[in-house]
Amino acid sequence: MTAKVVTITSGKGGVGKTTAVANLAVALAADGKKVVCIDGDIGLRNLDIVLGLENRIVYDVVDVIEGRCRLRQAMIRDKHFQDLFLIPAAQTRDKNAVSPSDMVRVCDELRPDHDFILIDSPAGIERGFRNSIAAADKVLVVTNPEVSAVRDADRVVGILEAEEKYSPALVLNRLNPAMVKSHDMLSAADVLDLLAIQLIGIVPEDEGVIVGSNRGTPVALDGKSRAGQAFRNISKRLQGQEVPFLDLDKQEGLWGRIQRLAGGRK
């Protein structure tokens, strides 16, 4: 077994990177994969609370790098899945405590015993981002259908392509089908045309995502959630399966259809 290292990044903050990592992690673990997530946002630890593991942290990734603990000791086992682990970010240090070669070393030590290593990159294109992509086999760029997020995603894709060793794929997060329908939101086709990279998933806007974060139970565990379904589909694609993209229009609920027929918009 040799793990695939997948880094999730975005350029702009607040587009749903951490949520995407948490959801892909549980979706992969639910398929029986051995998964480790690494929170790469040193100083702004977040993945622990989204996964509901914030009370179990003893050591963090900087403790591993600086030799204060063994790798195993910093790996926190998930509440739901035996084979899902989190290596948390340090909260009281900054990004300069880690170098790209440190991340490569940590990932190389994890590779033999796992199927997937997911790295949650910080926003921006500086040191923390460089650290997060250093070991990546695959980079997922998360964006929202908003001008600022798309522009920043394009910068990140440009940087990744300039380095030639990464193959970026796009996760379009928080798409609102009703707004797309009324031409008040960029469509998936628009964003793909602008960014011109491979698409790996479209995640519809879903209140369940916040409810999941509130509880520390990612929405991918909710079989009825559309966003959860979208994340489960991305996890299948990461495993090399061909899964058709969700038809977001067709899945529009009864309420959405009533609103549309009534000519109303949210």
């Binding site: 001008v147 522009r151 939101m185 602008l194």
Partner: peptide, 19 residues
């Protein structure tokens, strides 16, 4: 124009200059 169209046109221009 609807706002999505403005968004796309503005992005098309700005991305060319960014790139």
């Amino acid at each position: 124009k609807r706002s999505a169209e403005s968004a796309k046109e503005r992005l098309q221009l700005v991305l060319v200059h960014d790139r």
